[in-house]
Amino acid sequence: MNRRAISLMVVPALLSVLTACGATDSKTAGTTATPAASTTPAAAEDANKTLTLDQITEKAKQEGKVVSVGMPDTWANWKDTWNELSTKYGIQHTDTDMSSAEEIAKFEAEKDKPTADIGDVGMAFTSVAVEKGVVQPYKPSTWDKIPEWAKDKDGNWVVGYQGTIAIMTNTKLVKNPPKSFDDILKGDYKVAIGDVAKASQAQTAILAAAMAFGGDEKNIQPGIDFFEKLSKQKRISLSEVKVANFEKGEVEVALVWDFNALGYKDQLKSNDYDILIPKEASVIGGYATIINKYAPHPNAAKLTREYILSDAGQINLAKGFARPIRDDVKLPDDVASKMIPIDQYKNARPIKDFKAWDTTSKAIPQMWEEKVLVNLN
């Protein structure tokens, strides 16, 4: 999904937040995976151990580095997460931006010589990561405050933030911004959703269209039919959905996560962009952290997840327009005021049948190629 948008600043002290979450020397923060064939000394040392948060923190400091994939500075304000980890713990960071599918493939391909520690994937890809055996579990100290639907029972993945598919329109190019999927069908502009073969955002946009016309996780056909109609009118844009392409006028209308849309608008520093949640229906989805089973810096990865699910980490993500997964976190007024009005979400609903969605999402790329791309040649 070559991805990502947004940035502001996080100020609360991480140590006090993590302490408030209840982690002490006498309590364990989570579970540590057995890194199987990993040749990483740090991973081997921690195999079969259960560590306290203080122990994880100390080991993370010693590792001194965390390498992420698909978590660049400009997506959901990750920049300030990395800044906090550096400031508080001396943990340096590097990232390679890539799609959910590419992240999992990297973990698997590099298991004998791993380079990455942690990734951020769409929920449709969490089961793939578990099935391939490339993740290790870790339950942060805020585990009980995370909704059941948003976490793997064993801690193999945990949703950090949620998003809802929105319509983003360049009003310099489209004078009557669509407010619904039906409006889009009646328009004369091109619509972009990104790389359907690889991106969770693009696949979820198809699900949102399906829901708008009576479909669901088990029945994606109405969504495919919607885009097939647009493709026959030559109204599908294959441009990547990113700030530069909006700025160049290559993207007129896009279906993207609400936090990405708000972030793009913020970066563009322009009021010439309209952002709305589709009237008929939309999908609420989440992005989850996965920790590489073979991570060269496993404790730094765990501390990163710990921070993401802390109060400060959740507020930090919201500063990047991503709605926190923890409902108990109160957002500062200045942060909450930048979100899309809550009444627009009345017809948005979360994915409920994850098993069905897992099966459906795997079938989408071929359906897209056979029913949509074929009409664009």
Rank of each mutant, 00 (worst) to 15 (best):
M1R: 09
R3G: 07
A5K: 15
L8F: 13
V10L: 14
P12T: 06
A13W: 04
S16K: 14
A20N: 15
C21K: 15
C21V: 07
D25M: 05
K27W: 05
A29Y: 10
T32H: 03
A33K: 03
P35S: 06
A36H: 04
T39C: 03
T39Y: 02
P41H: 04
A43Y: 08
E45C: 03
E45L: 08
E45V: 02
A47G: 06
T50Q: 13
L53G: 14
K59R: 15
T74M: 06
W75N: 05
L85C: 05
S86C: 00
T87G: 01
Q92C: 02
T94H: 02
E102G: 09
E103G: 04
I104F: 02
I104N: 03
I104H: 01
T115Y: 12
V121R: 07
G122N: 08
A124E: 09
F125I: 08
T126W: 12
V128G: 01
E131Y: 03
Y138C: 01
K145H: 13
I146T: 05
E148M: 02
E148N: 10
A150K: 14
K153R: 09
D154Q: 14
G155C: 06
N156E: 05
W157C: 08
V158L: 09
V158M: 08
Y161Q: 08
G163Y: 14
K175P: 09
K175T: 15
N176L: 10
K179E: 14
F181L: 13
I184R: 09
K190D: 10
V191H: 13
D195L: 11
V196E: 11
A197S: 14
K198D: 03
A199R: 08
A199C: 13
A202E: 00
L207A: 11
L207Y: 00
A209P: 10
A212G: 13
F213A: 09
F213I: 01
G214N: 06
D216G: 06
Q221S: 14
I224R: 01
L230H: 00
V243M: 02
A244C: 00
F246I: 05
G249M: 02
G249I: 06
V256T: 14
W257K: 08
W257F: 13
A261H: 11
K265W: 09
D266V: 02
S270C: 03
Y273D: 08
K279H: 14
E280P: 07
E280W: 13
A281S: 12
S282Y: 04
I284Y: 00
A288R: 08
A288K: 07
T289S: 10
I290K: 09
I290Q: 05
N292M: 03
Y294D: 14
A301V: 12
A301K: 15
A301W: 15
K302G: 01
T304W: 14
E306M: 01
S310Y: 12
Q314F: 06
Q314I: 03
L317E: 07
A318T: 06
F321L: 02
R323W: 08
P324K: 01
P324E: 06
K330H: 04
P332S: 11
M339D: 14
P341A: 15
I342E: 15
Q344C: 07
A348F: 09
P350H: 13
D353R: 10
K355Y: 00
T360Y: 00
V372D: 12
V372P: 11
L373A: 14
N375F: 03
